[in-house]
Computed example of a mutant assay.
Amino acid sequence: MRQTKAPGDTTLAVELRGVRRRYGRGARTVNALAGIDLALPRGTFTAVMGPSGSGKSTFLQCAAGLDRPSEGSVRLGGTEITGMNENELTELRRGRLGFVFQAFNLLPSLTVEQNVLLPLRLAGQRQDRRRAAEVLGKVGLADKARRRPGELSGGQQQRVAVARALVTNPDVIFADEPTGALDTGTAAEVLGLLRQAVDGLGATVVMVTHDPVAAAWADRVLFLADGAFADSLERGSPARIAARMAALGAGNFRSGVMAGAAA
């Protein structure tokens, strides 16, 4: 895999410079991302919020190498990924990134242990059952390794997804509405696991969410509007985050890249 690093960037987990993403041509062009500059240090928990159509999903896909920006540069763990081919991107995602989705995305025919070990299997690495037991223990499912996903509650399935995201010790965990299908109490448990991964394991989490309560677990909340960051909030309460979102929806933020988004 291509490993392109620049001096002094190794403390950054995610770095986007001048990232734009356009869909369509001519009069039908949609500017989903209108110039993103962002630098996220390792060991941080960042939430990304914004109104429907603000570019949240596109941001996550470009930052995680699931989509290619029309312009700009994306680095993950100091590695420039913008020019990678599909095989290189697949290898990077399998070995250095973790993903947690709203729909869990577990394979029903596999056991919990096999689902957790799937990233290692796909990456051609040794199936380390002790590693699976370790991460399942961290998410409180040490006794569920032999179960199938269908035998677990929704919250337990999302815990399995978190364990799967942790198993490779990834540079970054990308979470897309990870609590969207969960009740309030179960959501808090899953968010607590992501928070613990940052505080206890030094993981980096980037989470897209519409929920101010979920965003309040993050170190920092970034607000997207019209494909650009409009504001940020450090360690905000759910009420403060909701108020910022309401103001954003009312168009009370200045457009453009927020001050301080770029390190």
Rank of each mutant, 00 (worst) to 15 (best):
R220H: 12
V48S: 09
A218R: 04
V205I: 14
Q61H: 15
E113Y: 02
V100H: 09
E134F: 04
A197E: 01
L152H: 01
G260K: 06
A262Q: 13
L222P: 02
A261H: 08
G83S: 07
R146I: 07
D226H: 14
G192E: 00
T11H: 15
G18D: 15
A225S: 15
P178Y: 08
L122W: 07
A187H: 05
S232H: 13
Q196I: 00
V198M: 09
F174V: 10
A64L: 05
L89Q: 04
A228E: 13
T79Q: 06
A239N: 04
R164Q: 05
R220A: 10
H210K: 11
T168D: 01
A225I: 02
P108H: 08
G78C: 09
A32G: 00
V116K: 06
N85L: 03
A123D: 09
E71T: 14
E80K: 01
D219T: 04
T11W: 07
L89P: 04
A203K: 15
T11D: 15
D171T: 15
V74H: 02
R75Y: 03
L89S: 02
G50S: 11
R75L: 14
R159T: 10
F59D: 08
L233S: 01
S232D: 14
G83P: 03
D143R: 07
M245C: 10
S52V: 12
R235P: 00
Q196S: 14
L40F: 13
P170S: 09
T58M: 09
L16H: 04
R146Y: 03
A203F: 03
A203G: 11
E189W: 01
K144H: 15
L201P: 00
F174M: 11
L60R: 05
A32Y: 02
R25M: 10
F253Q: 13
G55V: 11
T4V: 13
R93I: 13
A263C: 08
M84I: 06
